[in-house]
Design a protein around this nucleic acid. Structure first.
Lengths: 197, 197
DNA sequence: ACAAACAATACGATCGTACGTATTGAACGG
DNA sequence: CCGTTCAATACGTACGATCGTATTGTTTGT
């Protein structure tokens, strides 16, 4: 080994800067300056900005998966409440940043398909994995009679994730959590309502 | 007057290019080349890229409003079917482009808040106007007993628009209309379901 | 000493913007 | 009815900054 690597700080700075400025808007220099690293270190550790972004995205998704498990694996709560718990958790985190940043996965979803086929494919894979995590919880809720079985768990999970991204998008424009709260209010009264009696 | 103005062609080219590459990604040169106009003409007609984008956005929203009225003012259809008609209309248009471009309003919602306060404010205003158009139709549907009155029309309209943007986002990643079709299927069975009996 | 990583600089391309000039069509005086 | 004038617009080009990337030492820890 040589000197202590700056790879990790650069990745973390990349996450922050890309949150602020998006994939295209985040310059490599912006990132290295934020990391307190020289520009050359970027070339050294990453073959391209695109490959770098893919790595940032993967790490971010790992972080998100941690939050998902934190909420959805909580056996002390009924399954339906675990879903709400997740959304509340995210709401708090987004509010803590003043509603200025959203979800990197959603951000990249809008930008990346036009710029990078690599990122687009990574995103597609992420959504599948993400959806399966939620589908399991939804299936449990359906089995417990908390949620109507009109739709398959995967179907509801896809709808939830996509629509939630839409709510986050609105949050950024309005600089308010109103869209997030509205999503929860409406979704849990309709989408995640019990069986029609 | 002098020579025929190239302002209009440049605006139309701007719409196309920004669809493909986003706000940051679309260079002024890309746009003028697409328009077959010299770069100087851009400076002449627009004070900045930001102001230009605002003008493109306004024109795009005018176009969208045309589609909204086309679907929502169709008195031959019951109100609830008009909503579906609108979503079908958009689905067809997005599918016609191979699911590569989405909605400029959604695209800008992601990028603009971090780059331009001007655009952010325009977007917020657009969403309000847009929502009111749908709220009226939803109110009619509620009055006709087609949609449950659990939520206010404005509330449902906001939810619809935000979630629909989320579905479009997914469409771009998956290059398929599956997310759009799923949205309609689920939303009309839950969100826009009749009164619980 | 030898990899690995830092560190500094430079490349060509492209970025958004600005400026000076050429060209145009309509208004106006005779 | 014609020629001059004038504002508006097109147009070509150039600026300084920044883009992503590459290259070349220099330092560091084992």
């Amino acid at each position: 080994m040589a000197k202590q690597s700056l790879k990790e700080p650069i990745l973390q700075a990349g996450l922050r800067v890309m949150f602020r400025k998006g994939y295209v808007g985040a310059g490599v220099r912006d990132i290295t300056v934020e990391a307190g690293a020289p520009l050359g270190s970027f070339s050294n550790h990453f073959t391209s900005k695109e490959a770098f972004a893919a790595e940032v995205l993967d790490r971010y998704f790992d972080y998100v998966k941690g939050l998902v498990h934190e909420a959805l694996d909580d056996a002390s709560l009924p399954p339906r409440d675990r879903l709400r718990r997740y959304l509340d958790l995210i709401t708090d985190k987004l509010a803590a940043d003043g509603c200025t940043r959203g979800c990197l996965i959603g951000d990249f979803s809008l930008e990346a398909p036009g710029h990078s086929e690599l990122l687009r494919e990574r995103l597609a894979a992420i959504f599948i994995e993400w959806r399966d995590l939620f589908a399991r919880c939804i299936a449990d809720a359906q089995a417990a009679g908390e949620i109507a079985t009109t739709f398959a768990p995967e179907e509801l999970a896809e709808f939830l994730l996509a629509s939630w991204q839409g709510a986050i998008l609105r949050m950024k424009v309005e600089r308010s959590t109103a869209a997030l709260e509205r999503f929860k209010r409406v979704a849990f009264a309709t989408l995640f309502a019990g069986e029609p009696t």
